[in-house]
Amino acid sequence: MSTTTLPGGDWIRGISIKQPWTTAILTGAKTIENRPRPWRPGWVLLHAGQQIDRPALRLPLVARTIRGRELATGAVVGVARLTDCHQDPPGSPPCTEWAQPDAWHLVLSDVQELLLPVPARGQLGPWKPAPDLLSQVLQQLPALRP
């Protein structure tokens, strides 16, 4: 994980993602998250939502990526650094095999999985984590600081 200095203030947000997509990000294979609107760069808590996208479990790309992994739900399962947000130009090939057309692609790096998922409630769009939730995450990732 990067040891660069993190910006002060609102330095980390939460992003809720349905399973199995959250686990695909944790494996390092899925380096983007598709969203309808752009997000600004910065650190994000990776929150596995309560719901599982069951049809996605039958996609070969997803099945290969998450094979043998547990799909935690309703918990923060990791952190990542959102480094870029873009859309693919019309008519161009997708930036990765995970990219959806017409979506904003949130580029994720420095992904770090928590050893113990931290139960939490997420929400749509970027959300600010409660101090207690952030404290529990930082206990597992002491080098991650504002």
Rank of each mutant, 00 (worst) to 15 (best):
M1A: 15
M1D: 12
T3D: 13
T4S: 15
P7Y: 08
D10A: 13
D10K: 10
D10Y: 00
I12R: 08
I15E: 04
S16Q: 08
I17Y: 04
P20D: 10
W21K: 06
W21M: 12
T23C: 05
T23K: 06
A24D: 03
A24C: 15
I25Q: 04
L26K: 02
L26W: 00
T27P: 06
G28S: 12
G28N: 09
A29K: 14
T31L: 10
I32E: 06
I32D: 03
E33V: 08
R35K: 12
P36F: 02
P38W: 02
P38V: 08
P38Q: 12
W39H: 13
W39V: 10
W43E: 07
V44Y: 07
V44D: 04
L45A: 05
L46I: 14
H47D: 12
A48D: 01
A48I: 04
R54W: 03
P55T: 08
P55K: 03
L57K: 10
L57P: 04
L57E: 11
L57N: 10
P60N: 11
P60K: 11
L61K: 14
L61A: 15
V62Q: 03
A63E: 13
R64S: 14
T65E: 10
I66A: 05
R67A: 15
G68Y: 03
E70P: 01
L71E: 03
L71C: 05
L71P: 02
T73E: 07
T73I: 14
G74F: 02
A75T: 00
A75D: 02
A75M: 03
A75H: 05
V76T: 06
V76Y: 01
G78S: 06
G78N: 06
G78A: 07
G78W: 02
V79F: 00
L82H: 09
L82K: 05
L82I: 11
L82S: 05
T83K: 02
D84K: 05
C85Y: 00
C85H: 01
H86T: 08
Q87H: 01
D88H: 03
D88W: 00
P90V: 13
S92Y: 01
P93N: 06
C95F: 01
C95T: 12
T96W: 02
E97Q: 12
W98T: 11
A99E: 08
Q100H: 11
Q100P: 00
P101G: 10
D102F: 06
A103T: 00
H105V: 06
L106F: 05
L106S: 02
V107K: 09
L108W: 01
S109T: 15
S109G: 12
D110E: 15
D110F: 05
Q112F: 00
L115I: 01
L116E: 14
P117G: 09
L124K: 00
L124P: 02
G125E: 11
G125I: 06
A130C: 03
A130I: 00
P131D: 08
P131I: 04
D132I: 07
L133Q: 08
L134I: 06
Q136T: 04
L138H: 13
Q139S: 12
Q140F: 04
Q140W: 03
L141A: 07
P142K: 12
R145Q: 15
R145I: 03
R145N: 10
